[in-house]
Simulated assay, not measured.
Amino acid sequence: MRHSDISGRLPMAMALDRLLSGEPARDVIRYVLADMAPGRSAVVSSFGAESVVLLHLVAQVDPDTPVIFIDTQKHFAETLRYRDTLVERLGLTNVRSTVPDAGRLAAYDTTGELHAVNPDLCCHLRKTEPLERALSGFDVWLTGRKRHQNAVRQAMPMVEEEGGRMKVNPLADWTPSDTSSYMVLHELPAHPLIGQGYRSIGCRPCTSPVADGEDERAGRWRGTGKTECGIHLTRNGVPVGVIERSVGA
């Protein structure tokens, strides 16, 4: 069944969530790309710690699927090299980088140190705004988020409505064992920082290694109480986090 106009339809998101929950991730991806919103779906990837799994699944279904990478201009050099490695290794043919607006950075992050004084605003300028621009023209976006990653994500549905688009999380119910087994089975390369104790990898200034027994996202914005960057702060229109922005943001 094709869905020609799905924007902003919360009841449809809930129905699709019931339909797709429990289905294999590859089947969910194939349904999204071929039936749910053909030509109007994109993958959003950080090319981080576990990104290779979703990207590998997508490449198997359609390697020409648009993949949006938010280049915050604060990434680890290892992440940028890993991105290039995966693009070549998986045969991804449509990876699009989106960057912050230079004028906005000049106005609000003149020293490049905004992350240290207002990480929410920094994420808004460097992630949320560029992603919204990049998603223009798409009705659906796929993420690699998983329920086990932190407390906020534990109730995450497979399909949710956000800002007039559908957001689909094909790996929502995957466990760490599922992910590691899949990577071993398909001989997928790990992010080079994994071996240094990083388990969730974002921007260089705001990411630190994680100790044994810690939540895998404990190394993100450590000591700030912040757990999400700002692009995943609502669930079907209901806030699941708090973001504070300066005037004009």
Score class of each variant (00 low, 15 high):
142 L>Q: 02
196 Q>P: 05
144 G>F: 00
162 E>P: 10
89 R>D: 10
89 R>K: 02
106 A>C: 10
74 K>C: 10
158 M>Y: 02
199 R>C: 10
155 A>F: 12
150 N>K: 13
187 E>R: 06
97 S>W: 06
194 I>G: 01
190 A>Y: 02
179 T>W: 01
158 M>H: 01
124 H>R: 13
179 T>I: 01
72 T>N: 05
185 L>C: 11
149 Q>K: 05
82 Y>N: 03
201 I>G: 08
98 T>D: 09
188 L>S: 03
74 K>H: 13
93 T>I: 13
178 D>C: 03
195 G>T: 02
205 P>H: 08
193 L>F: 01
151 A>Y: 14
128 T>P: 08
72 T>S: 05
126 R>T: 12
146 K>C: 05
123 C>L: 12
107 A>K: 15
186 H>S: 03
202 G>N: 06
103 G>F: 10
129 E>N: 03
166 M>V: 07
135 L>W: 00
116 A>V: 15
82 Y>T: 01
195 G>D: 09
96 R>V: 14
67 V>E: 09
89 R>Q: 09
160 E>Q: 00
140 V>Y: 02
63 P>M: 14
106 A>D: 13
168 V>M: 02
82 Y>R: 02
180 S>D: 00
185 L>N: 11
111 T>E: 06
202 G>R: 01
75 H>D: 04
157 P>G: 12
92 L>K: 12
162 E>G: 11
186 H>D: 02
159 V>A: 11
173 D>K: 07
197 G>Y: 08
67 V>S: 07
163 G>F: 04
113 E>M: 12
159 V>H: 01
149 Q>I: 06
150 N>V: 12
141 W>P: 09
88 E>D: 15
100 P>H: 07
177 S>I: 03
140 V>A: 01
141 W>C: 09
175 T>G: 05
152 V>Y: 09
82 Y>A: 04
74 K>L: 13
163 G>Q: 08
82 Y>K: 10
139 D>F: 08
